[in-house]
Design a protein around this nucleic acid. Structure first.
Lengths: 347, 347
DNA sequence: CCATTTAGTTTAAACGTTTAAATAAAAGTT
DNA sequence: AACTTTTATTTAAACGTTTAAACTAAATGG
């Protein structure tokens, strides 16, 4: 043990040349004789040489590492997002530093600073919108970053920031439109945290659909449950008690939808007969026999991939000053929880 | 843009002292006058100085970074494991490089090499047991690592390697014992990939329980489905067709259990009346109304935490040559899918 | 055969820190 | 006042690379 790693110097000594020569060989630089090249290569292989990225990073100021800040690992959304980011980054030769903030917004800036200090080449930011604009620090030092699943509403940044998002407005609209056309007039909305532009826009879309169809958004029927199972369960019970006024529920993520489902069933009601239910995310749970939740599918993995590709393009200066703002579309997955049948919509 | 990061030199110039002095101030070293200390501190704060970890890493040979290799992000097990690792590491001041191999075992060694090159202080290895012993390279260079959810059977390593695992044998035993005591004599087993010590031991435990109770392990009733939903679905359909010989199924993870559930229900059978079913992991799906899967709960997050704590203790040389082999116990979560009732077991 | 080009290699500085050793300045002792 | 001790600061080397510039030797050209 303690047998230090092989360095370029170790090789150069054995190969009777200087470190510079070895470096050039290892980087396939032109202008080295075939003989030395082969000799050095052989010795490097013999000693199982791996270039020290830390040293390389110091001089080149490139680390081939990317920072990824997510909210948490166990949410379907972030898990798939991270999967997309990591796999795609790997393909392009980058490694991921991952940080989760677990809804503690104050952590984000701290992590970002740390990632910068650790020398990442760029960052993917997927947590909710804090009002802070700490990322102008990133701009200042010229470190590329892209938002995934998040926009900035800040007037100084909204137009400049690179992002990949879902068309959440359209998705929310679509969800409510589906309920409306199945005959529902009184619809409750369980929203996710409103610090996220995604949820803000889902909610706006949903409300717009209600207004466009001449429905009223009744007070107490739209509540922020912060993507939390328990809060959603409680709120769903409240909605049930308003049964006269509510016949359908749109939950802005599947976890909350399933919380609502539990509340509805435990209170002796049936889905969709007594209460229609539509979720968001199309998690694995939604398709199970007996659950069959109508929901909205977004390509989290794809968003991660696109985001990181875009980031790497920036890093590698493919399109230095392009501003990339990508908006993806979602898909309505119709199952049984809203009672849609082949006979189609009633209006 | 392009406004390079502040360095120690920038500060030293303004503060009229040398880089060494600044360094000492930033590291709270004794022997600097209060005056310089404050001056340097103020300037550093003004310039928003962040020490460059890359440079620091190069000289100290410590990076405060840890490598984590998982199979994938979207599996419940690895998501929670990673969550535990990351959170605990954060508490102790470490950042995580995450790599997923997605069942491609050959990637693991490559990643490990890369992580070493990037200067991690240690690694948490949670993927399946490859037969390779590439980690002796890690021993050679003196880089600490710990296995989580995995042991080594290799005679040279089995006794020396640090790990945190579940008592999978006992868990498998417990699962089958539960079925047996509910009156089942013919039990099918859907195993996870047998390249993982976890699944090997679950299977062995399960078989032992059968043997101990005088049951026969019939041919064709124990099949490796590689933790794959589709394979499990198919195999479950086969088991159904052997209905005379099989009345209960033990699946080594919840995903496969739910695949079996779909197969059973789609074939017009009922759970638990026609077929009892027990899973493993207690994922969020298992507890949903209408699913209510009996399963085995393990603390993935806790395993991650313990693993990384153990690793950091090694890194920081708390117990230099201790060998830590931790075995945790699981818990049987009884729901409805095996038909257990308050009347208890029949034997 | 000398001048010039080309090919192969080395030198030396740089990247931003840390750290042991050296030095200088200030403070104590007699 | 001369010597010792203490305190504060600087020097210089190191970490493992990369890279531009300098050098050397061999090849080419006239």
């Amino acid at each position: 043990m303690g047998n230090k790693k092989t360095t370029i110097k170790d090789i150069s000594k054995i190969a009777n040349c200087t470190a510079a020569t070895v470096s050039m060989v290892m980087n396939n630089r032109p202008g080295i004789s075939k003989k030395t090249c082969e000799r050095v290569r052989r010795i490097a292989a013999d000693l199982d040489y791996q270039p020290n990225m830390v040293a390389r990073n110091l001089v080149s100021n490139k680390s081939k590492s990317i920072g990824l800040i997510i909210n948490n690992f166990s949410d379907h959304f972030f898990a798939y997002l991270a999967e997309g980011v990591e796999k795609e980054a790997r393909k392009r030769g980058y490694t991921i530093f991952i940080c989760s903030i677990d809804s503690d917004l104050s952590l984000e800036e701290m992590y970002a600073d740390m990632l910068v200090a650790k020398g990442v080449d760029g960052m993917v930011l997927s947590t909710v919108c804090s009002d802070s604009t700490y990322f102008e620090k990133l701009d200042r030092i010229g470190l590329p970053y892209v938002f995934v699943n998040r926009k900035s509403y800040h007037p100084d940044f909204a137009g400049k920031v690179n992002y990949v998002v879902l068309d959440n407005f359209e998705a929310g609209y679509k969800a409510v439109q589906h309920l409306y056309r199945l005959g529902h007039d009184r619809i409750g909305i369980i929203t996710g945290t409103l610090r996220s532009s995604a949820n803000i826009e889902r909610t706006e879309g949903a409300k717009k659909a209600m207004v466009d169809n001449g429905l009223k958004v009744q007070s107490g029927t739209v509540i922020n449950c912060d993507n939390c199972y328990n809060k959603a369960y409680e709120f769903a019970e409240k909605l049930i008690r308003m049964k006269e006024s509510v016949t359908a529920v749109f939950a802005e993520d599947d976890t909350m939808a399933l919380a609502a489902r539990e509340a509805i069933l435990r209170n002796g009601l049936q889905i969709p007969e007594d209460m229609a239910l539509i979720g968001f995310d199309d998690t694995r749970m939604s398709s199970l026999a007996g659950i069959e939740l109508t929901t909205i599918r977004e390509k989290e993995k794809g968003m991660g991939q696109m985001g990181v590709n875009l980031l790497i393009d920036k890093i590698e200066n493919k399109f230095p000053d392009a501003i990339n703002q990508v908006t993806l579309k979602s898909k309505l997955i119709i199952r049984k929880s809203c009672g849609y049948s082949k006979t189609g919509y009633v209006r």
